[in-house]
């Protein structure tokens, strides 16, 4: 069977020459992956397998680094490095930090 990521030779439209400067959160995903590989917590092969197992829908709908962080999360859960409970709590905490930062009022007028 052909897995969805294995797309060499399939019909496709013109190459849309899109580019974007990576956002800080995307670079952070990249950094986390590099360090987890360097520290031998997971391998690139596991990252790839995790991306493939997101399935065709997610593969096409998610952005590149969204696929990466989803795969990293699943592999870390699978290996018992983190738990679902910890992850749920940490996501909530991250959102709360962001909300607090966004609520930071403008205290001086722009020059």
């Amino acid at each position: 069977m052909r897995r969805h990521h294995d797309m060499g030779g399939l019909p496709a439209g013109p190459v849309e020459r899109t580019e974007h400067e990576h956002a800080p959160w995307e670079k952070k995903v990249d950094a986390i992956l590099r360090l987890l590989v360097a520290e031998k917590v997971m391998t690139l092969d596991e990252l790839r397998r995790g991306i493939e197992e997101l399935g065709p829908g997610a593969y096409d709908e998610l952005s590149y680094f969204e696929r990466w962080i989803r795969s990293i999360a699943n592999i870390l859960l699978e290996k018992g490095v983190i738990t679902v409970h910890e992850l749920a709590t940490a996501i909530e905490a991250a959102r709360a930090r962001r909300a607090a930062a966004e609520a930071c009022p403008k205290t001086v007028p722009a020059p």
Binding site: I32, E39, F65, I69, I91, R95
Partner: peptide
């Protein structure tokens, strides 16, 4: 949600001393 997931994983890996 994916940004929050990224920050959450970073914080957990730091808290556990893995990174």
């Amino acid at each position: 949600w994916h940004m929050a997931l990224t920050d959450a994983i970073e914080q957990l890996l730091l808290a556990k001393g893995i990174l």
